[in-house]
Simulated assay, not measured.
Amino acid sequence: VWECLIWNVVDNSQAEFDASKISTFQDGYSLFCEAEDAFGGGRLNALNTKGEITEFTCKFVPNKPGHNFPVYSEGLFYACTDKAARPGFYDIEGNMVIDLSSYNMGRIPYSSEMGVNAPYFENGQATILFANNADSVFEAVIDKTGAFVGEPEKVDVSVY
């Protein structure tokens, strides 16, 4: 866990907090968490450019072997509910906007080494991975309502 000091030199505002993971600023916000478990997961917070911190009830829950930290993009970020039972996309107030709990997303590793990132929106769409009951993994593109854009395609990714 690092002691962080963010200083906005434009208006001379500062924010001081502890964080184990932090994202870059995007769309005026940075997400961070202070580690609460052995795998580096924890409760998410948002920091705006004025140094104001918003605490969320949702969490960053890393998958093994690696899970890229979520970023705030196009008004949403990917996280899980407090009990990690309901993954989805949240707005900057911490409200779930897209509920993805009907998809088995919890045991699929997202990592840059695999060319797969934690889900995020770009140009109104996000790519998600989910497994069916036979542990086959599918890649799907969703829009901001959570609807599929096209048909999900099977991919060669292992489920843990």
Rank of each mutant, 00 (worst) to 15 (best):
K83L: 12
G75M: 08
A46C: 05
P87I: 13
V61T: 13
L47F: 00
S136K: 08
T127Y: 01
Q125C: 14
M114A: 15
N132R: 02
R107C: 07
L76C: 03
S23M: 01
A126Y: 01
A38D: 15
P70I: 08
S23G: 01
N123P: 00
E52T: 10
T127N: 07
A38L: 14
F25K: 07
L44G: 00
F77W: 14
A85Y: 06
S111Q: 10
P62D: 13
I108E: 10
L100H: 05
G40S: 07
R43N: 15
M96A: 09
F60L: 04
T49L: 12
Y90V: 06
Q26A: 12
F39G: 11
G94E: 13
D91M: 04
Y72S: 01
Y29C: 03
G40D: 12
Y78N: 04
L100Y: 06
N123F: 07
G42F: 04
S112D: 12
D91W: 03
F32V: 05
Y120G: 02
Y29R: 15
M105Q: 07
L31Y: 03
Y29L: 15
L129E: 04
T54C: 03
A35N: 12
V71P: 00
E139V: 05
K50Q: 15
F89Q: 08
A85C: 04
P87W: 09
P70T: 09
Q26L: 13
G88C: 08
N48W: 00
D135V: 05
G115F: 00
G88K: 10
G41R: 05
S111M: 14
G42Q: 09
G94V: 11
C58V: 07
T49V: 08
V116D: 03
G41A: 12
G94R: 14
R86A: 08
L100M: 15
V71F: 02
G41D: 14
N48V: 11
K83R: 13
T127L: 09
L76N: 03
D91P: 02
D135R: 10
G28D: 11
D82V: 11
T49S: 06
K83F: 07
T127A: 11
P109D: 14
N117V: 09
C80I: 06
A118G: 06
N133A: 06
F25A: 10
P65G: 13
N95C: 05
F32K: 05
P62S: 13
C33Q: 10
N68C: 11
A134K: 12
G66I: 07
F69Y: 15
S111L: 09
N104E: 14
N63W: 02
R86T: 15
N104A: 13
P62M: 11
F130Q: 01
G51C: 05
T54D: 00
K59M: 13
L76E: 03
F32S: 00
N63G: 14
F32W: 02
F25G: 07
D82W: 08
A46M: 06
S73C: 06
D37H: 09
F89N: 04
Y72N: 02
E36W: 02
L100T: 11
P65T: 15
N68G: 14
C33F: 00
Y103P: 01
A79M: 05
C80M: 14
F32M: 10
Y72A: 09
Y72E: 00
V71D: 06
F60P: 01
F39H: 08
